[in-house]
Each structure stands twice: as C-alpha cells, then as structure tokens.
Amino acid sequence: MANQSKRHAVVDTMLCVACGACMEVCPRGAITVWKGSYSVVDDALCIGCGLCAKECPASVIRVEDRP
C-alpha cells in the first residue's frame, strides 16, 4: 500500500494477557482482542505510533519496521 507507515505494532500473542488496554488507546481503532485470547493489529490501519506499546501493561507490543 502506498501510504503505509514504515513501522507497525507487533504483539507477542503468547504473552498477551488480552486486557484490551492497547485497543483502548489506539487512535486508529486498529486493534481488536481476538476471541478474548490476544490482541490482533490490523496492519493496514496501524501507523506505528507506539501508543499501544507504551500502554501495554505486560509490555508485549513492539513497534518494528515493516517487512
């Protein structure tokens, strides 16, 4: 996609506690908690701002360069 950000949020799904704190702060509404199990980031919407990573109480979200 042409206007995609250089970076995006990546969730460690094994350690995610599915609390939804990231979903709450995401300014793009890009995060959902998949079936109460772990957070999933919609890559097309994520702008890599890092608010979710900052908020995550378990610190299991990293902002990385897109592949």
């Binding site: 799904t13 079936k35 908020e55 109480p57």
Partner: peptide, 28 residues
C-alpha cells in the same frame, strides 16, 4: 504500568484461559 494488575489478575487469567480454550487457539 497503570494496568499491570491486569497481567496477573486471577479473573483475567481465568477468563483468558476459558476464551483460549473456546477459540481453540493453538499454540502459535
């Protein structure tokens, strides 16, 4: 972090366990 209780909240752990079982989430 503000919501660090959520990391080890027993209700949270239990409900996540139930949800993962229901979702059949395989170890990824």
């Amino acid at each position: 972090k503000p919501r660090s209780w959520c990391v080890y909240c027993p209700m949270g752990t239990m409900t996540q366990m139930i949800c993962r079982m229901k979702a059949g989430a395989k170890k990824e």
